[in-house]
Amino acid sequence: MKKQTDSDVAVIRIQNLCKSFGTNKVLDHFNLELHQGESLVVLGRSGSGKSVLIKCIIGLIEPDQGSVEVLGQNVLDLDHVGLDKMRTQVGFLFQSNALYDSMTVRENLEFPLRRHSINLSQEEVNKLVMEALDSVGLEHTVDLMPAELSGGMRKRIALARTLILKPAIILYDEPTTGLDAITSLEIIALMKSINERYHTSSIIITHDMKCVKLAADRVAILIDGKCYAEGTYDTLRQSTDEKIHPFFQ
């Protein structure tokens, strides 16, 4: 049985989102809502525009048309200051982890803290860093360089960096890609425990069906730039639609 979401309040509302690269229409009047406390998986084939979608949400890619409301604010109307403020409440776990190679784990975690909250004392920063590392079980890596970590550890550190600002929403871009089956399960379990512990809402972009099955409260399927179908994992798994069925085979 899936977890009930905290409320029906939409923390993200996407309406008629369109994005093209040249003649390639990636998103075509895409509509979606993420509710508070919900874990929503966006499922789609490689190159279907899933990553473009979450980069539009966080304001890294500007859509051609449509609107993206995050916590009641239209992302397209925000200036730099507004975007920075919005991004303190929305964490983003990159597919490639995006840890800064030239910085230690500590510096990687301190980076968003120092940029967003410049008034924190060193003691407070240290406390937040250790707290975030504790939540992913990697306190001992604090002075290591990213190159010294395994793939799974890098993913956890990236997640700790995402968590450090205590965001209300977390966007996961292919969180289990490139990881072995056991590490993938660990990451999925960690994502679920973070959702419960910090009461975050999350959008998970993936094509890993194990991740969909274990992490999703609701699943949205992105096909031809549109939200083709949405529902729970079990509902969609039973679908006989020729476009949905192959995902669950």
Partner: peptide
Amino acid sequence: MKVTEQIDAMEVSGT
């Protein structure tokens, strides 16, 4: 940094 999304991560981190 560009191909490993570190530049995007920097932007998301308010930089």
